[in-house]
Simulated scan of single mutants.
Amino acid sequence: MDGMKPAMESTAEENPDEREESKGCLDCCIKCLGGVPYASLVATILCFSGVALFCGCGHVALTGTVTMLENHFSRITSDHATLIDVVQILQYIIYGIASFFFLYGIILLAEGFYTTSAVKEMHSEFKTTVCGRCISAMFVFLTYILGLAWLGIFGFSAVPVFLFYNMWTTCAAMKSPIANLTSVDNICVDVRQYGVIPWNADPGKACGQTLADICNTSEFYLSYHLYIVACAGAGATVIALIHYLMILSANWAYLKGACQQTHAYQDIKTKDDAELQDVQSRSKEGLNSYS
């Protein structure tokens, strides 16, 4: 029994150390989780999702649109050659947008980590620099410009949705009882009036049963719904950029306030040190005069 006592005592001595170690890990995890900029993280996820939907769906929808025009509205390649060039340029722009916002979202998330740490530690040894505040102000300005640009992209992405919706409703109108009062062949959709293809394109329009068959094709159905999703993705990106703008503005204001508080504290400390030195020098002079 006596031989078991030292083992029990060593176990009892190890348990507090293990508890302190586990408690230290828990505190460290809580501290790390507390330093995560959740608002920036949500904005980044929303931005990535919106840009991915816009770029992916927009790219496929543009390809389907060209295929549908070549098969049903413009059989001569020279008539829609300009359209093909424009579509290729837009697809390259989509590649650039996807790459740029992937990097920009990561940069803004990193900036969110930086400003969150700066705000939470502004009363300790951490000091915000002028360069850091200038970078935050630059991101505010750049995000504002990008938000305006994405508002334009959102409006532009609504145009094909409107055109496809008109075509969709025209096909649905042919199936209504009102269409039976007139000839179905008189119901047409002319894409030349939208400026998509030139006026001399052949045939340029689709009527009656031909139009109904076009509306039932996979190119039309898929492109129409992909344009809707792409437009929704552009709207989500606009919301994400507005969210980013609010976060960056708040962080910049906090950094500016922290800097002002630090400067005020340093001024007060400098004055106190000067007064203390003055009092000490006067006391030394008084002692010397008495001696």
Rank of each mutant, 00 (worst) to 15 (best):
N166M: 13
K269P: 05
I178L: 11
K31Q: 14
I242R: 00
I76R: 14
C28F: 11
G96Q: 08
C57N: 04
S117I: 05
L151W: 04
M138R: 00
Y92I: 08
N180M: 05
L103E: 06
F162P: 01
L211K: 10
F101W: 03
P177D: 08
P37A: 06
V36G: 01
T210M: 03
P16T: 05
V191S: 10
V51K: 00
Q193F: 10
I94D: 12
R282N: 13
G112V: 07
T169G: 03
E21Y: 14
K175N: 14
C188A: 07
C188Y: 09
V191W: 06
P203N: 06
P203W: 02
N288K: 13
T44V: 06
C55G: 06
L103C: 15
A172C: 00
K23G: 12
L226T: 03
S249P: 01
V161R: 08
C188S: 07
T210P: 01
K205R: 05
F139Y: 09
G96N: 07
T169Q: 13
T65I: 08
L90Y: 01
I106E: 05
A39K: 07
K256C: 03
D278L: 15
S124A: 06
F156L: 14
L53M: 14
Q277E: 10
D272P: 00
A230S: 15
E70C: 03
Y244W: 02
K5A: 07
V184Y: 01
Y194M: 11
I106T: 09
L69F: 08
Y194I: 06
S249I: 11
L69H: 02
G152L: 13
A110C: 15
Y92C: 07
E275C: 08
P6N: 09
C131V: 10
V140P: 00
W168H: 15
D79H: 14
N251E: 08
C134M: 12
L255T: 11
Q260Y: 02
V279Y: 11
G35W: 09
I97R: 00
K31I: 04
Y290S: 04
M8I: 14
M4F: 12
A81F: 07
C29A: 13
C134I: 06
N186H: 07
G50F: 00
V196P: 01
I187Q: 05
Y221W: 10
H263G: 03
D272C: 05
T217S: 13
R133C: 10
G147K: 04
S249R: 04
L211A: 04
F48M: 08
F101I: 04
I106G: 05
N15F: 13
F164T: 06
G56C: 07
D190V: 08
N200P: 02
G56M: 02
Q91R: 15
S281T: 10
S117G: 12
C134H: 03
I94C: 05
R282F: 09
S176W: 01
A118G: 11
S10E: 09
A81D: 12
L245I: 00
M68W: 00
T115K: 00
M174T: 12
A81E: 11
A264C: 04
T170N: 02
A232T: 05
F141G: 03
D2Q: 06
A158Q: 10
Q88M: 09
A98H: 05
A137W: 01
R75I: 14
S22T: 10
